Computed example of a mutant assay.
Amino acid sequence: MSRRYPWQLDPRPDAPFPPAQTALREPDGLLAVGGDLSPVRLLNAYAGGIFPWFSDGQPPLWWSPDPRMVFRTDGVHLSSRFRRSLRHSDWTLRADTCFGTVIRACAASPRPGQDGTWISDDMVLAYEALHALGHAHSVEVFDGDTLVGGIYGVAIGRMFFGESMFSAASGGSKVALAGLARCLHGWGWPLLDAQVENDHLLRMGAEHWPREQFLALVRRQVREEGFVGSWRQRFGVIPARQINDTFASSGPDA
């Protein structure tokens, strides 16, 4: 039996990606190699349910795994214990006030089972360019003026593709994720892409979706009218304790 290899991308930034259904089974979801991280290529990738993920020294690798890890925007679970702590929290959430700081904090955060980070300097610059164009966004959690957590990702139409999050204080990333989901749900955005399986995300309510189901929803949502530009004013300043009653509890210790 001949071995399948991922597609080599055309060097033109606007060249189409191969169909996501042609991605490899092993490693799961590897679809293509090469190309660049230009804004047009990144936006084309996300609109097709594809994302980049590679380490320093590798060419860009492009993925569309099956199944896909997703959150329904009204389906984030916070433990009873954590929700009790939020009742007395003075933390606040904002959006797009320090995107560069958030992505660099995500890059510096240690990941279990990983030696180093996949968020290279080139990735940081690429997503900062997307942010400047109004397509990449961050949600930040502050304790006073101190950044204690955050999440960033890419928005196209009414679909949000989460990339990474971090905590500088216990629970910071949970609050960022829950706050983002709360806001997206209020805007009528049904899904938040979480890409690949992670035990922490599963405990918070993430679901496995077959790739075809995910892609069908993405195709619809990216054509919907969204918000290109800064989310700072639209998001506002949200007290963390306000997200406490938005989502279901997942049990006392989850």
Rank of each mutant, 00 (worst) to 15 (best):
residue 9 L to D: 04
residue 9 L to F: 01
residue 15 A to G: 14
residue 17 F to T: 01
residue 18 P to G: 09
residue 19 P to I: 09
residue 24 L to N: 03
residue 24 L to A: 06
residue 24 L to C: 07
residue 27 P to L: 11
residue 29 G to W: 03
residue 31 L to S: 02
residue 37 L to Y: 08
residue 39 P to D: 13
residue 39 P to Y: 06
residue 39 P to Q: 14
residue 40 V to A: 12
residue 43 L to C: 05
residue 48 G to H: 13
residue 49 G to H: 07
residue 49 G to S: 10
residue 49 G to Y: 03
residue 50 I to A: 03
residue 52 P to S: 11
residue 52 P to M: 09
residue 53 W to I: 13
residue 53 W to F: 14
residue 55 S to R: 11
residue 58 Q to M: 15
residue 59 P to L: 12
residue 61 L to I: 01
residue 66 D to P: 00
residue 67 P to C: 03
residue 72 R to G: 13
residue 73 T to Q: 01
residue 74 D to Y: 06
residue 74 D to C: 06
residue 75 G to R: 10
residue 75 G to Q: 09
residue 76 V to N: 11
residue 80 S to D: 08
residue 81 R to H: 08
residue 83 R to F: 12
residue 87 R to H: 15
residue 89 S to I: 05
residue 90 D to V: 10
residue 91 W to Y: 14
residue 92 T to M: 11
residue 97 T to C: 04
residue 98 C to M: 15
residue 98 C to K: 11
residue 100 G to E: 10
residue 104 R to M: 06
residue 108 A to H: 07
residue 110 P to E: 15
residue 114 Q to S: 05
residue 117 T to A: 00
residue 119 I to F: 02
residue 124 V to A: 02
residue 125 L to Q: 14
residue 126 A to F: 09
residue 128 E to L: 13
residue 129 A to Y: 06
residue 132 A to S: 14
residue 133 L to P: 13
residue 139 V to T: 10
residue 139 V to Y: 06
residue 140 E to H: 07
residue 145 D to E: 15
residue 148 V to L: 08
residue 148 V to W: 02
residue 149 G to V: 12
residue 150 G to Y: 09
residue 151 I to A: 13
residue 154 V to C: 04
residue 157 G to P: 06
residue 158 R to V: 05
residue 159 M to I: 09
residue 161 F to E: 01
residue 162 G to Y: 04
residue 163 E to L: 15
residue 163 E to T: 14
residue 164 S to F: 03
residue 165 M to G: 11
residue 166 F to I: 10
residue 170 S to A: 15
residue 171 G to K: 04
residue 171 G to Q: 00
residue 174 K to W: 04
residue 175 V to C: 09
residue 175 V to F: 10
residue 176 A to P: 08
residue 178 A to M: 08
residue 180 L to V: 07
residue 187 W to Q: 12
residue 188 G to K: 00
residue 190 P to Y: 12
residue 193 D to G: 04
residue 196 V to C: 07
residue 199 D to E: 12
residue 200 H to C: 05
residue 200 H to K: 00
residue 203 R to K: 15
residue 204 M to A: 03
residue 206 A to S: 11
residue 208 H to F: 14
residue 208 H to V: 07
residue 216 A to P: 14
residue 217 L to M: 15
residue 218 V to N: 03
residue 221 Q to W: 08
residue 222 V to T: 13
residue 225 E to P: 13
residue 225 E to W: 00
residue 225 E to V: 13
residue 226 G to E: 02
residue 226 G to R: 05
residue 226 G to Y: 10
residue 228 V to Y: 02
residue 228 V to D: 01
residue 232 R to M: 11
residue 233 Q to A: 15
residue 233 Q to D: 15
residue 235 F to N: 00
residue 236 G to C: 05
residue 237 V to W: 03
residue 238 I to M: 08
residue 239 P to G: 01
residue 245 D to V: 05
residue 248 A to D: 06
residue 249 S to F: 11
residue 251 G to P: 00
